[in-house]
Simulated scan of single mutants.
Amino acid sequence: MTTPVRQDLVVLSLEPWDEVWRRNQHLIAGLLHDDPALHVLFVEPPVDHLHDLRRGAPLTLGRRLRPLTAHDGTPTGRAWAYRPTKWLPRRLAPGADDRRARAVHRTARRLGMSDPVLWVNDPDGAAVLRATGWRSLYDITDDWLRAERDPAEHRRTRQNEDLLLADCDAVVVCSPALARSKGDRVGRTVSLVTNAVDLAAYRRPMARPGDLPAGDYAVYVGTLHPDRLDLEACLRLAVALRTAGAHLVLVGPALLDPLDLTRLEAAGAVVLGARAAAVVPAYLQHAAALVVPHRVDDFTDSLDPIKLYEYLAVNRPIVSTPVAGFRDQPGHRVITASPQQLPAAVLRVLSAPPTPGSPAEVPSWGDRVRQMRDVLDRVRAGTTPR
C-alpha cells in the first residue's frame, strides 16, 4: 500500500482558532479529517495591543506556533496555529505586513512546508502571496470594501483585494451577492461555497443553560460587531422585552465599544459573551425567539450569515431585520421587520408563539468540505479557470 503524498496548506484567517467555531474552522477540520495526507498551518490575526486598550480588553500576547490537537477538533500532529503580535499601528511601523509575511514563510518552512497552497481569508494576506508566489485561493466571506473604514484602510484593502483577485489561482465566495460583485469586478469565474451547519449538534436536545435569566428570552448568537449589529435596534428590543418581563440575551464575542456594552446592559440586555461551539445549540433550543437585529446596508447585504443555518436547524421562531439570507426565507420560517418595528414583531411572537412546522432542509458542513476540497484539488493541479 502506497503512502499518500503529503499536501500542505497555509490558511490566513480573519479569526483565531478557538472554541467559537466559524466557517474556517469547520472547513479546515473537515478537510483534515477527510484527508490523512493534509497538513495545515493556520495563521490567526495578529494580537493588536493598542486596539485592545482602546476597547478595554485585557492585553494578550501572540501565541506564536502551537500544535492543534483532538481537543481543538483536529487530528493530532497535522495542524498548527500561529498568532503573531502587532506592536504598533501601520503608520508608526511601515512594512508590518511584509514582516508578517516573512514570518509566515519562515514558520511554514520550519514545519517542512516548502510548496504549500495558500488559503487567504484575510485581505492583508496579500503580502504573503507577494512574498511567496505560492499557489493560492482567495476565500471571500465579507465585503470589507463596503464596510465603514477610514480612507487609508479602505485604500489598503482595495489594493490588497485587487492583487488577490488578479493573482490567486481560485476565488471562492460565500454569498450570491459576493459572487456577483467580485465576479463582475475582476471578470473571472468565482466558486460559490455558502455556509452551513452541524445538523446533528443543533438537533440533538440539550438542557437549558444555567446562566440564562429566568423566564422567556429572545437570543442573538454571533459576534457583537459594530459592522453588523444595529445598536439602536438592540436597545429598543432590550427595553421592550424587559417591559414585557422577558430578556434579550446576546451570546458571542463582544467587539463593541465598552460604552455601547454598558448601554445594552442598562437597557436590560444580558450580554453573556463567547460560549464554546458545543454548547451554543442549547441557547437556541430554549429561546422563545431567535433574533437578528442587524444593520441593513451594503455590507450586511454581502453576507451569508452562519446563524441563518443554525437558527433554521433548531426550528424556533425567527425574527430578523430584512438582511441577506433571512429576507429570502418564507414567512412561516422567518418574520422580517424593520429595525424600528423589530421589538413589536418579537413581542407578538412571545405573546402568540407559532406552531412549529417541519424542520427546514439545511446544508451540512460536510457538503461544503467536499466543495472546498474540489477547489483545492483544482488549485494544486493548476486547472482553475481564469
Rank of each mutant, 00 (worst) to 15 (best):
T2W: 07
Q7P: 02
P16A: 08
E19F: 05
L27W: 03
G30V: 02
D34F: 00
A37G: 12
L41P: 02
L41G: 06
F42R: 04
V43E: 01
D48F: 12
L53V: 15
G56D: 11
A57C: 01
P58W: 09
L59S: 13
T60S: 14
R63W: 09
T69H: 11
T76Y: 05
R78W: 12
A79M: 08
W80C: 03
R91K: 03
H105A: 15
H105V: 09
R110A: 01
R110S: 10
L111Q: 12
G112I: 08
G112W: 08
M113N: 00
D115Y: 00
D115E: 15
P116A: 11
N121S: 14
N121P: 00
G125F: 00
A126S: 09
A126V: 01
A126N: 01
V128C: 03
L129F: 02
A131K: 05
D139W: 06
D142F: 06
D142I: 06
D142A: 11
D143H: 06
W144R: 04
A147F: 12
E148M: 03
D150C: 12
H154Q: 15
R155E: 15
R155K: 09
R156Q: 13
T157W: 04
N160V: 07
N160R: 06
N160Q: 14
L163A: 04
L164K: 09
A166G: 05
D167A: 15
C168N: 04
A170M: 04
A170D: 10
V173F: 03
P176A: 10
A179T: 02
D184M: 10
D184I: 02
V190Q: 08
V193W: 02
V197Y: 02
L199Y: 01
Y202D: 09
P205W: 02
G210L: 13
G210C: 03
L212R: 05
L212G: 05
G215V: 12
R228K: 14
L229Q: 06
E232V: 10
A233D: 05
C234Y: 07
L235N: 10
V239H: 11
A240K: 01
A240T: 10
L241G: 03
H247Q: 11
V251F: 05
P253G: 02
P253S: 12
D257P: 06
P258T: 07
P258Y: 07
L259F: 07
A267M: 07
V271E: 01
A274W: 01
A277P: 00
P281S: 06
A282V: 13
L284W: 05
H286I: 10
A287S: 10
V292A: 11
V292F: 03
R295H: 10
V296H: 01
D298C: 03
T300A: 05
T300F: 08
D301G: 15
L303P: 04
K307Q: 10
K307G: 05
Y311R: 10
Y311H: 13
V319E: 10
V323N: 06
A324P: 04
D328A: 15
D328K: 03
P330A: 08
P330K: 04
G331K: 10
H332Y: 13
V334F: 04
A337S: 11
P339I: 02
Q340D: 15
P343D: 00
A344D: 13
V346K: 02
V346P: 02
V349N: 11
S351Y: 00
P353W: 09
P354E: 08
P356V: 07
V362I: 14
P363N: 08
G366Q: 14
Q371H: 13
Q371D: 15
R373T: 12
L376K: 07
R380G: 03
